[in-house]
Write a protein that binds this DNA or RNA. Structure first.
Lengths: 241, 241
DNA sequence: AAGTGGTCTAGACCACTGA
DNA sequence: CAGTGGTCTAGACCACTTT
């Protein structure tokens, strides 16, 4: 029977939930292999099936698990369908991938706001990646990505051509970091000269600036990313309650 | 014992949940009076306490109910804390209310996109309200509000001075319509002359345009509102997963 | 057919709120 | 103190997926 750590005054379902999150964070199950069935998990934790179901269902509501009747319970990958940056894709086929072009990768000490976002000591070393994202042949986003070292050491000497268009799967396979949540802040700025040149827009046009902090399952910040794109034509949809 | 309508092949908890939503929509409980305790509700519906608790907890997760241990279960009022328009208030005390100035109220046939948003027949009559919202003495938002007639008849001849700064409580007390959800879409536009003049911004500056459809508990659209404000300095925060 | 999650029951006991 | 929601148990049976 699995031993539970944590404050014993907390409700059982909280202790079990925390333990399952820890095991998921340690990579005990990948998204293709089911967790043990609820009856067996209940036995292992020495709790009743009703309590075990409560834990699993709550983790499913929180987005950590996906449950499929007849198949099993699986850990879930994030998809960023509600991300702001998705809205730069315009009329494009939502299944297609934007092209990515790495402009430069460089190691340097973190600027103050970067260190704060990544919860690092001031002047800790970070890997800085500049890239362009190109949708249907049209340049749409300028991105600057900050990754803490030494956790992302294995990307430092990677040639630009070997970067894949989607970075998060790379973080997982090459660095063992799985992104499971993020927060983004949107601002509207006047375009800089660099913006106007790359995005092919009027120097007087506004740009959308999106700052994202991406986190792993334990809630630690893993990536800090700034994206800039043309604001005119930008659209974002929000549902309240 | 309460009689349940609806497709009997559906799970019990769905039928009970739908029935409770209907009763809430009919105004059976206001936000200050608790629903009957879960034990009594379970008896009335002839279901077990476990199933009744599941229904109440799910309605709480969906935002329809608030449960307070020792006090009871209450229907919940929406607050629009995550609404885009909140972000025009800048550094202001979040508890203070913006000033509202009604510019005009007018009855006219709905434009095509208004009729579509409110799910009305083309050219159905709507009440159109133009107003300004002023935060800390500074004009920040231009709003145009569309309300379907005859549901909002009682506002047609109301003098501008009798409109309150918050419209949703007025809709409830004067017209019997309770707003419980909304969806908003954000765009960035170039300023019009009217925008620049009222908002006191440069004619070259961009504006944020927010289109909101507000709905009642049954999901029917009740209000269509367009708000415009200065885009530079606008900020919006999003949490993913 | 075997194994998964989904629905539902009928309780017991605990923690918190308000009078 | 009475009454509320919160936690937890120990099952039975159903619906769906896979082999």
């Amino acid at each position: 029977m699995t031993q539970l750590s944590g404050d014993a005054r907390l409700p059982l379902h909280v202790l079990v939930s925390d333990d399952l999150k820890r095991r998921m964070a340690e990579g005990e199950w990948d998204p293709e292999t089911p967790l043990p069935p609820e009856r067996r998990l209940a036995d292992e934790y020495g709790i009743s099936i009703g309590t075990m179901r409560r834990v699993l269902n709550e983790l499913a509501v929180e987005g950590f698990l996906v449950r499929e009747q007849g198949r099993g319970t699986f850990v879930r990958r994030v998809d960023f369908t509600s991300s702001f940056t998705r809205f730069f894709r315009h009329g494009e086929d939502p299944g297609s991938l934007p092209e990515s072009r790495i402009i430069s990768t460089e190691v340097r000490p973190a600027a103050t706001e970067v260190a704060a976002a990544l919860e690092l000591d001031d002047h800790a070393q970070v890997l800085v990646i500049d890239r362009h994202r190109i949708f249907e042949g049209t340049p749409r986003l300028l991105e600057t990505i900050h990754l803490p070292l030494p956790r992302f050491e294995s990307l430092v000497d990677l040639p630009a051509a070997e970067f894949e268009p989607l970075l998060y799967p790379m973080y997982e396979t090459r660095c063992g970091e799985t992104i499971t949540s993020a927060s983004e802040v949107l601002h509207i700025d006047p375009a800089t000269e660099q913006d106007a040149e790359f995005l092919g827009i009027d120097a007087a046009d506004p740009v959308v600036r999106i700052e994202r902090i991406a986190r792993n399952l334990l809630g630690s910040p893993v990536e800090y990313r700034t994206s800039r794109g043309h604001a005119l034509g930008f659209t974002y949809r929000l549902d309240i309650k």
